[in-house]
Simulated assay, not measured.
Amino acid sequence: MYDFKPATPLPPAELYRDLVSAADALTADEPDGIANMANVAALLWEFLPDLNWAGFYRVAPAKSGADDELVLGPFVGRPACIRIPFGRGVCGAAAQSGVTQCVADVHAFPGHIACDAASQSELVVPVRRGDTVIALIDLDSPTPARFAAEDAAGIEALAALLATRI
């Protein structure tokens, strides 16, 4: 049995080091990307306080056969938008730009997609294989300004680990 939940509140640097270590242990020998995303979504939920959604969006061909779009991957939380075009909302902005989006107030973000009305802030980190965005790690919180630079850096380290495992 795996028990990767931190025992006590930890300083952010230590928390993210432990999170990445746990993700490494769970994904190192597993070739199935969906299984790895599912376990990492569960780790995010266990490790990070004050979330109401944690999971992945994958880059996939659009239903229309045109450009790529984001398609819902494994997650923990309320049901979510299944498909998101590049450039739309926080996730679409991260996919299009390839840049981490740390949004203190999602309601002030142009084109925000409200999958859960309780969400107040969001952190979206691209997972890249080389120069190509292949997925996103998406975290939502019911607390305004929940995420800081140290959260972005920690999730970026996780994304780097997962780049060849999802």
Rank of each mutant, 00 (worst) to 15 (best):
K5I: 12
K5N: 10
P6T: 00
T8V: 14
T8P: 07
P9L: 07
P9M: 06
L10R: 03
L10W: 04
L10D: 01
P11E: 11
P12E: 11
E14C: 09
L15M: 13
Y16C: 06
Y16W: 11
Y16I: 09
R17D: 09
D18M: 13
D18I: 11
L19K: 07
V20Y: 05
S21C: 12
A22E: 06
A23R: 06
A23I: 05
A25N: 13
A25R: 14
L26F: 14
T27C: 08
A28W: 13
A28T: 15
D29T: 12
D29F: 15
P31M: 07
D32I: 06
I34A: 15
I34S: 14
A35F: 07
N36R: 02
M37K: 14
M37E: 15
N39A: 12
V40L: 10
V40I: 09
A42S: 13
A42P: 04
L43E: 02
L43F: 01
L44V: 08
L44R: 03
L44M: 11
L44H: 05
W45N: 04
W45H: 09
E46V: 10
E46K: 13
E46D: 15
F47N: 01
P49R: 14
D50T: 11
L51T: 08
N52L: 07
W53V: 00
W53K: 02
A54W: 00
G55K: 02
G55T: 00
R58Y: 10
V59F: 13
A60T: 09
P61E: 10
K63G: 08
S64H: 12
S64N: 15
D67V: 09
D68F: 06
D68R: 09
E69H: 15
L70Y: 02
L70W: 01
L70Q: 02
V71A: 11
L72P: 02
L72W: 00
L72T: 03
G73T: 07
G73M: 00
P74E: 09
F75T: 07
V76T: 08
R78S: 14
R78H: 12
P79W: 04
A80T: 04
C81Y: 11
I82F: 05
I82S: 05
R83C: 14
I84M: 01
P85R: 14
G87F: 08
R88L: 13
G89V: 02
V90I: 15
C91K: 04
C91M: 10
G92V: 07
A93N: 08
A93D: 06
A94H: 07
Q96P: 04
S97W: 08
T100P: 03
T100N: 02
Q101M: 08
C102G: 03
C102A: 04
V103W: 02
D105S: 13
V106L: 07
H107V: 11
